[in-house]
Design a protein around this nucleic acid. Structure first.
Lengths: 159, 159
DNA sequence: TTACGTGCAAATAATTTGCAGTCCC
DNA sequence: GGGACTGCAAATTATTTGCACGTAA
C-alpha cells in the first residue's frame, strides 16, 4: 500500500488567525513566560513575545514578525528579530518548521502536530486532527535518536 | 494519542550510497532519459545526469553536485548546476525535498517516500518501509488539492 | 541557421556576525 | 557595575538573473 493509496478522512483544519483575539494573554503572562524560560525580559523580547504569544497560535517568518513589530509600537532591528526567534526556539517557546528551502517558519504551537502549506499564499496552517497522521516512527540507525518529525502537506489551488 | 506515543517498529533504512556501483545505468540510458523528458542532451546535462542517475538513489544539494562534477571530468558552472537541477525537477526526473530552511535537497527517487535527516552530518537518507508512515491524508480546504506530502524524521546522535 | 543552453559575474534574499553602545539585576 | 542584550552595518550563504557566446538539431 503506497502513500497515495492511503485512506482519506475529513479533518478540521485551523482557520488561521481566527480566534486570535479570543486567546487573551496578558503582558504579565509574557513576562512570566520569558522569566521561566530563563530569558531576561527586555523591552524588545516583551514586544515580540506579546505579538507572538498574545494572539493564539501563530506561524511567522522573521520578516513577517519584523514588519508587524514595526507597524505596532516599538522599534526593533531585523537582526534582533532573528536573534530573538532563535533564543525563543532554543528555550522551547517556539518550534521551527521546515517548509521550503528558502524561508524559516516559526510556530508558537510547540506540541506535536503537522501543517498544511498553501503554496500560492505562502501560508502555513495547523492540521488539527483527532487521529495521528503518523502511525509509527521508524527505528533510527544505531547511535541515533529521533529529534523530531516534520510533516508538511503541500496544497495547491485547484485549477 | 500523541505522535510520541505512536508505535515504533523496526524498519530497513537505506544504507546511503551502498549499492551505488551495482545500479549500472549506461550513458545511453541517460541520453534516452533526457530525450524522453524533452530535454536536449547537452554535454553538461549528460554529465550531471550521469552522476545523478548512474549510481542508484542519491540525495544532493547544488553545491554537492557541483563539487562532484568538478572533481570528475567536465567543467560546469554552479549556475548551470542550479538550472539543471530545476529543469530536471520540472521534468519529473528529480524531487525536491524540504529539509531545513537553508539548503535545497534533490532526490533522484521521485516516488512517494520519506526521509531521515541526520543533523550533524547534513545527510539525507531514504526511509524504506513496508507499511506507510502516513495512514491517511487530511482533506484540504475548499478549492485546494494536495500537491505533495513531505515527511522528515530528524535524527540526532545519541549523547 | 537558429532557438535553446551555458558561463560568468553581478544581483537578490535570507540569515549571521562583529562590535560599540545600552540596559536589566 | 558588569555581564547580558541590542542595533547597525558589513559579511556569509544560497540562489537567481542578464547577457554575450556556444552548440545541438
Amino acid at each position: 500500500m503506497t502513500q497515495t493509496d492511503s485512506a482519506v478522512r475529513d479533518v478540521e483544519y485551523d482557520p488561521g488567525l481566527a480566534g486570535a483575539a479570543a486567546a487573551g494573554r496578558t503582558w504579565h503572562d509574557v513576562k512570566q513566560k520569558l522569566r521561566s524560560a530563563g530569558l531576561r525580559p527586555t523591552r524588545q523580547r516583551l514586544l515580540l513575545g506579546w505579538i507572538l504569544f498574545g494572539k493564539g497560535d501563530r506561524h511567522v517568518t522573521a520578516e513577517m514578525l519584523y514588519e508587524e513589530a514595526t507597524r505596532e509600537k516599538l522599534r526593533v532591528s531585523l537582526a534582533t528579530v532573528y536573534n530573538t526567534l532563535h533564543q525563543f526556539t532554543s528555550a522551547g517557546l517556539l518550534r521551527r518548521v521546515a517548509v521550503d528551502a528558502s524561508r524559516a517558519y516559526f510556530d508558537t504551537n510547540t506540541s506535536a502536530h503537522h501543517h498544511f502549506f498553501v503554496e500560492d499564499k505562502d501560508d502555513l496552517v495547523d492540521i488539527v486532527a483527532n487521529d495521528p497522521l503518523i502511525g509509527w516512527i521508524p527505528v533510527p540507525p544505531e547511535g541515533y535518536e529521533v529529534a523530531g518529525v516534520n510533516v508538511v502537506v503541500r496544497l495547491r489551488r485547484k485549477r
